[in-house]
Amino acid sequence: HMYGYGLKSMMLSMIETICKVTEGEGNIGLVNKIIELGQELLQRPVTLLNGVKEVLSAFQGKYKLVLATKGDLFDQQRKIANSGLQEYFTHIEIMSDKKKADYKKLLDKLECSPEKFLMIGNSIKSDIIPVLELGGYAAHVPHHVTWAYEQYEGKVEYRNFIQLNHIEDITNYL
Rank of each mutant, 00 (worst) to 15 (best):
T171P: 00
H1S: 07
L67T: 03
I124C: 05
S83T: 13
P114L: 11
Y63L: 12
L106N: 05
K8S: 06
L7A: 13
I92L: 09
I170Q: 14
Q163L: 15
G24N: 08
N172I: 05
S126A: 10
D108A: 07
N50F: 05
I94L: 10
G29N: 11
H143N: 05
R44Q: 14
I28A: 09
N32L: 11
I128S: 02
R44S: 03
P45Q: 12
T90M: 09
E23N: 08
V131W: 00
Y149T: 04
C112E: 07
A138P: 13
P114E: 06
L106T: 03
M11P: 00
L164A: 12
G61V: 06
L174S: 08
T47S: 08
R78E: 10
I128Q: 10
E87Y: 06
L118M: 06
H1D: 05
F89I: 08
G24S: 02
G61N: 10
S126I: 03
I35Y: 08
K70G: 10
Y3H: 11
K109A: 11
L107R: 02
L164K: 14
Q163S: 15
D97I: 06
E157W: 10
R78T: 12
G6L: 01
E87F: 03
K116Q: 12
L85G: 07
H91W: 05
K155W: 04
I15G: 01
G26K: 00
K33P: 08
D97E: 14
S13M: 15
Q76Y: 12
T22M: 12
T146M: 11
V131R: 01
S113W: 03
A101K: 10
G154I: 12
C112G: 02
I94T: 07
G26A: 13
I28L: 13
I34H: 09
A68I: 00
S9H: 07
T171R: 13
Q76M: 11
Q77K: 09
S126D: 08
L65Q: 04
K8D: 13
G61E: 04
I128Y: 03
K62R: 14
V31F: 02
L118F: 01
E157K: 11
F89L: 07
L164M: 13
G38P: 07
T17Y: 14
K70F: 05
Y63P: 06
L174G: 03
Q60H: 04
H143G: 03
P130L: 02
S9T: 14
A139M: 04
L164P: 13
I92Y: 05
F161T: 13
G71R: 02
Q151I: 12
N160D: 09
Y5H: 09
D75N: 10
F161R: 12
T69R: 07
L73Q: 15
L134V: 04
K125W: 05
Q76P: 09
T90L: 07
G71Q: 01
Y3G: 00
T146V: 15
Y149N: 10
E16G: 03
V46G: 01
L49W: 09
D108Y: 03
Y173M: 11
V156I: 13
S126Q: 01
P142A: 06
E54M: 12
V66Y: 04
K20R: 10
G6F: 10
E133F: 00
L73H: 14
R44L: 15
F117V: 01
G24C: 04
V55C: 00
